[in-house]
């Protein structure tokens, strides 16, 4: 077995250039997913008529199927929908002019929404019921109480889960290479096949993902210390 170590370094540098796209494919879905998650959580906690079952199905289906399916379904299905609408409304717009990245972001946002809603809900349920009661007892509306008292505590409680989902999506973003996105994994494939050094290229990619994961964990640990200052007692 021969491993071309200098090539690993070269590959590292080459692949690393694709980091911005990986960050985009990781963060954009998480941010949109967070908003979707809040919406879904409100629907599920308030048991909004009509939407409740729909929200439950959304969460269950998206969590019950691989992210690859979400990407492929949106990537294949959304253009059909757009083209059909374009014909009906006589748009001159064509689905082929939409960059594939957009489909990836849409699909993964939906995925993230499902997972986020579970995290947010668990966080909210973990906040002591007495907190809500105390807020309402001083005359806050339910919305004010949720926004000012329950939600901030729920997010602090959820921080470890939010870190996990970030790392999860950092890794999930690698699937995007299947629809030819040149993020870290896509770039690795190109470097590997251009030089016919597959093992070296994937070692380099692994090192990058590993490094990013470790950094994310360290950052979370720091955040956790800051956010939950009120939980630690001791000196502020």
């Amino acid at each position: 077995m021969q491993i071309d170590i200098p090539f690993i370094f070269m590959a590292l540098i080459e692949i690393f250039k694709a980091l911005p796209l990986t960050i985009i494919i990781t963060l954009v879905p998480l941010i949109i997913g967070f908003l979707i998650g809040i919406g879904i959580t409100i629907i599920r906690i308030r048991k909004v008529k009509g939407l409740y079952s729909l929200a439950n199905f959304y969460v269950s289906f998206l969590r019950g199927t691989p992210a690859l399916m979400h990407i492929m379904l949106i990537y294949l299905g959304f253009p059909l929908l757009i083209d059909k609408l374009a014909v009906t409304f006589r748009w001159t717009f064509q689905s082929t002019s939409i960059p594939i990245l957009l489909f990836v972001l849409m699909a993964l946002s939906l995925t993230a929404g499902a997972y986020m809603s579970e995290i947010i809900r668990a966080g909210i349920l973990a906040v002591d019921q007495g907190q809500l009661e105390a807020a309402e007892s001083i005359g806050m509306t339910n919305f004010q109480a949720m926004r000012r008292i329950v939600f901030p505590q729920a997010i602090a409680i959820s921080l470890p889960n939010l870190c996990n989902i970030f790392i999860g999506f950092l890794h999930t973003s690698s699937i995007a290479f299947i629809v030819s996105q040149k993020e870290l994994t896509g770039a690795t494939n190109i470097v590997a096949s251009n030089n016919l050094k597959f093992l070296e290229a994937y070692i380099a990619a692994a090192l990058i993902y590993w490094g990013l994961t470790i950094i994310s964990e360290k950052v979370t640990a720091l955040l956790e210390k800051r956010v939950t200052v009120y939980n630690r007692g001791g000196v502020i």
Partner: peptide, 25 residues
């Protein structure tokens, strides 16, 4: 830490290309 730190896809490729290389030894 490594398994938690890398995507399954990358692990898959690493084993696919790496294991035969190791076994040739």
């Amino acid at each position: 830490s490594f398994m938690r730190g890398t995507p399954i896809l990358i692990q898959l490729f690493l084993i696919y290309f790496g294991l035969p290389a190791l076994l040739t030894l």
